[in-house]
Write a protein that binds this DNA or RNA. Structure first.
Length: 429
DNA sequence: TCTGGGGTCCTAGGACCC
DNA sequence: TCTGGGGTCCTAGGACCC
């Protein structure tokens, strides 16, 4: 008698990445710029490119490049100021479209997401078919092209979508983008080979510093990294980075697709056109930025306990200061006054190039009432209803009536002193 | 012609408590 | 009284990502 084979169902992870997102969105709004090289970004002396159209890329222009340098590479360049709100709106529709393929969608940024499509295969046929259909729908609805990678883990899926990206053509050429291509599916059996010959810098978590450290150890490729002793990596790079990189280099990446990632901090920073040397000059900006940060917190229904102040000096050095409060707050005046005290201890006459204000330790307000939405034991999310317990309880009743008794978990009053969830469990009905 | 504005996570030391 | 160990929180800085 034979036992059925143990089938370890491999995950199928999809990574979708919009092509030249901000720039493509602007080209849709400004068709008259179709034949011009376009970047979105800051235009001043200190501006940088946030996104470059493919026509701009054909001149060597890249994102994160100083706008001044981009202009030298491409004198004809059109620089469009970013319109963040609009990109957020487009992004939200893109994520909705992704959600038609699986509920497991994890946005990475406005123009990128991971989808766990392990369970979606049967609905769309092959991975290629699913990826192609996602790409087609995104173009049909938003007029935007994307690149899609599918593999058994996030690392390979992301590299796969990258490898499916269009390549800029010779100077002056338009976007080499169309309905063909744009999809790369990596078979599980091919994943190690797919990784092997790449430079270590392709791995998630290897930037300039770690890359240089690895090269000094004689490690340049993923294959070399995979064969390097873990202990040596740990002693040179620290336990966290060392182990993580060793796993990734060997094609092991179990990071799940996480649906509701709650923000841990909110911040706002600004580089001045001209450096400031007087604290009094900074106060109005500090107050305004504290107000912007706390308004965003209030809109999300959270308060923060730690106020952060950041300064970049004329010589590009950076100093940060932070203070944790006894009580969480989303009050702009409170944040501004704490930040102001921190600022008072710093030598502003050194020359301030950048000012930043932030709030971390975010959570629901101390007096919030939370609804936990769950279905058959699976947590779907937490709906915070600030300060209005009666409304929260009514909302809970509505959900129960529509979806049944198991649809909603206990109603909870948040108490931070108790370390988070102080489940009162008294969903009084 | 050294560079923006969001974020995340890690490390390391000190304070404090048990 | 002295010494040590473990855990957690706070702060500053740094690496990295898009």
């Amino acid at each position: 008698m034979s036992h059925p084979a143990v089938v370890v169902s491999a995950r199928r992870i999809l990574h979708v990445d919009m092509d030249a997102f901000f720039a493509s969105v602007e080209l849709l709004r400004h068709p008259e710029l179709r034949d011009r090289p376009v970047v979105v970004g800051g235009g001043g002396d200190r501006g940088v490119v946030a996104a470059a159209s493919y026509r701009a890329r054909s001149y060597g222009v890249r994102s994160a490049m100083a706008t001044a340098r981009a202009r030298r590479l491409c004198p004809d360049l059109v620089v469009v100021a970013p319109d963040h709100r609009h990109y957020v709106a487009v992004s939200s529709r893109i994520m909705d479209c992704c959600a038609e393929f699986t509920p497991l969608v994890e946005p990475l940024s406005l123009d990128e997401a991971f989808l766990d499509v392990t369970g979606s295969g049967g609905l769309f046929g092959s991975d290629e078919a699913l990826a192609g259909e996602l790409r087609r729908r995104l173009h049909e609805r938003e007029g935007l092209w994307s690149s899609v990678g599918v593999a058994s883990c996030k690392l390979v899926a992301k590299l796969a979508s990258e490898s499916a990206k269009p390549v800029p053509g010779p100077p002056g050429s338009a976007a080499p983008v169309d309905g063909s291509g744009g999809v790369r599916v990596v078979d599980p059996a091919d994943e190690l080979r797919f990784l092997q010959d790449r430079p270590v810098g392709d791995l998630w978590g290897v930037g300039p510093v770690t890359g240089a450290r690895l090269r000094s150890l004689g490690v340049a490729t993923v294959a070399e990294l995979a064969g390097f002793p873990v202990e040596a990596l740990v002693s040179h790079l620290g336990p966290s980075v060392g182990r993580q990189l060793h796993e990734l280099a060997n094609g092991r990446d179990e990071r799940p697709v996480v649906v509701d990632v709650e923000a841990r901090s909110i911040s706002q920073e600004e580089t001045f056109a001209h450096d400031r040397t007087d604290a009094a000059d900074l106060r109005p900006d500090l107050l305004r930025m504290a107000e912007q940060v706390t308004r965003r917190a209030r809109r999300r229904g959270v308060e923060g306990r730690t106020v952060h102040l950041k300064l970049r000096w004329s010589d590009l050095g950076t100093t940060t200061r932070s203070r944790t409060l006894g009580e969480p707050t989303a009050d702009g005046l409170v944040v501004a006054s704490v930040a102001s005290e921190l600022l008072a201890q710093l030598p502003v006459d050194r020359g301030v190039r950048l000012l930043g204000v932030g709030l971390s330790g975010l959570g629901p307000p101390a007096d919030a009432t939370q609804l936990r939405l769950s279905l058959e034991g699976h947590e779907l999310g937490t709906n915070v209803t600030s300060s209005n317990r009666a409304a929260a309880l009514r909302a809970a009743d509505e959900v129960r009536e529509r979806f049944g008794e198991t649809a909603i978990g206990p109603v909870v009053s948040r108490s931070r002193e108790a370390g988070g969830d102080d489940a009162t469990g008294d969903d009084s009905r």
